[in-house]
Design a protein around this nucleic acid. Structure first.
Lengths: 337, 337
DNA sequence: TTGTATGCGTTATCAC
DNA sequence: GTGATAACGCATACAA
């Protein structure tokens, strides 16, 4: 059954009122004074015909798309999955649709081209901080935008998590267990989150009166983590091998664990491992991975909430204070004697 | 700097031509005969003013949104991440935007409400097969739609993978290693993919002249896999314990591995494990997990490609023939003597 | 080779 | 209390 598209006019005709009335009923206009009986006729017609407002027309008229954009580097990264979930649910609560796009095979520029003009009312950027002229690119669009989870050089439009504290929590956990030679497997050198976690590591080591252990950088991937851990262990002089490693990211930690095993060492007997970001999966690794849980979904929610009432050239610099929590599992234990 | 919205009219004024000409230049109308000089004036004005077509207006006029929808149960499931990537890149290649929505805290019905009418030109449904009256819900929308990866009762509008063959590949691998007592950790009983993988398991066992081992169902999650594996091992009489398990999904396999360890057994010494769907991560588990790699991204691509030229009530029933491949890692080995 | 006219479906400002 | 009307920005058939 091929039902033709039904418009306001159809509903108006059936209810024997003007389109304007139908429109105001649909939008629950509070200034509308209408007889109960008439309203019911309208509602009945809407129901009967299965009328749904046309988004394009509405959007053209009101110049609001009721849609937010979210740009991420890669859907395969579970960290973004959490952010998306939070952003999506908050958007839904506001009656907005969230359209998430990834950099898969294209950059932000191409994404903006495809999105076009007038399709979204605001844009969230997660994990896209490297481009220096990011702001310039985005000012073209004349829509509110916000960086999520990381910042870009000289741009005051972001909401981030307290990565420094997360790192400190991890290091303090290791210190409490008795570790003194604590290495750091950092994130990619250009990533803002990586820098903040490294800063947290350094500060916590200083606070504990411990010298910084070796530091190696790697991408936020298992492969990167494995390679970096191999380097880290190979370069340490015998007897001065770190007894614990703070890994900047859970994905690289998974690789790092393999790196430890490849070196013929055992976790946590020889080396303890703790990483930032908790995943369901972490509890099922062998051994189960100790992590620091971050409020990623809350970050997504907060981003959308800010975007809603944001001036296109407002300045936002927020560190989200949410529950950051160490999840102690089997990959951390006291050091060998 | 708050640049006002620039429209066709602005460009036309600056280039001293009519809006119609600009429109046809923008859309590269091949029937347009235009002086080179004029075209350059138009292009220059577009560049100068930074003109971008308004999507809402265009969409209202042409009744095409240049946007496809993709609905999934959960962003955290890496299987969907692959599908999204494929779908997104194909959509991009066609000049379309892909808007992926998840069931997080709401069903398909609510999603369709939010999407509204006229926002998308087609809808892909991945992993959403349980609702019996799915088709009814969607016929309201009068847009082309397609189920991806799984089917719904009595609905002939899908493209799926050859899950049966994938299962057979896994089982044959185990048989070739010498296993004879091969159990099956199936997916959720209502899932179409689970049914097809189970069928593949049964067929392959029959072909090998082997009796089916114990079969247990579980959700596609680590927690589900762990619990199901515990049951499986607990219920097997001593001496008849399966020496290998074919797990329907990689996420549950990760849990299943933990289940094996919890029972005091070792992989692959006591029990071999093989699962459907390959992930980056699988190679970094302990031990590295043997998997069957499926062309998930290709599935997403194919879905979008079909959606493009699809009649709203066409019938589609396609099993995607793509490379299905066994990735042999450390979790499978010959059985104990 | 370029311009004119019309309508897509909606909302908002009036008028009655 | 309800109806008429004018945009919103664009694409396209047709006129010139």
């Amino acid at each position: 059954m091929k039902r033709a598209r039904v418009t306001l006019a159809d509903v108006a005709a059936m209810a024997r009122v003007d389109r304007a009335v139908v429109s105001r009923v649909v939008n629950k206009d509070p200034t509308l004074n209408i007889r109960q009986e008439t309203r019911e006729r309208v509602l009945a017609a809407i129901e009967e015909l299965g009328y749904r407002p046309n988004v394009a027309a509405r959007s053209l008229r009101t110049s609001r798309a009721h849609m937010f954009g979210l740009f991420i580097p890669d859907f395969a990264n579970p960290v973004y999955a959490e952010i998306i979930k939070g952003a999506e649910s908050e958007a839904a609560a506001q009656g907005y649709v969230l359209v998430t796009g990834s950099a898969t095979g294209a950059g932000l520029g191409e994404y903006m081209d495809r999105i076009g003009q007038g399709r979204i009312d605001g844009l969230l950027l997660a994990g896209t901080g490297e481009d220096a002229d990011l702001a310039a690119q985005l000012d073209q669009a004349a829509i509110p935008w916000l960086m999520l989870n990381n910042r870009s050089q000289g741009v005051k439009r972001y909401v981030i998590l307290d990565d420094q504290r997360a790192a400190a929590l991890a290091v303090e956990h290791l210190v409490r267990l008795g570790h003194r030679r604590i290495a750091h497997l950092a994130g990619p050198s250009r990533a803002d989150t990586a820098a903040r976690r490294s800063a947290g590591y350094s500060a916590a080591m200083r606070d504990a009166g411990l010298p910084e252990g070796p530091i190696t950088a790697a991408g936020y991937t298992p492969a990167g983590g494995a390679a970096a851990m191999a380097r880290l262990l190979a370069e340490a002089p015998e007897g001065e091998r770190p007894t614990a490693v703070f890994v900047a990211n859970v994905a690289s930690a998974i690789g790092a664990m393999e790196g430890v095993r490849a070196a013929g060492l055992e976790i946590p007997r020889d080396v303890s491992i703790v990483a930032v970001h908790d995943l369901d999966l972490a509890g099922y690794l062998n051994p189960a991975l100790t992590t620091v849980r971050m409020p990623l979904a809350e970050l997504g929610r907060r981003g959308v909430r800010l975007l809603g009432g944001l001036d296109p050239d407002a300045t936002v610099a927020e560190v989200l204070t949410g529950p950051i929590e160490l999840i102690h599992r089997r990959s951390t234990a006291p050091p060998p004697d």
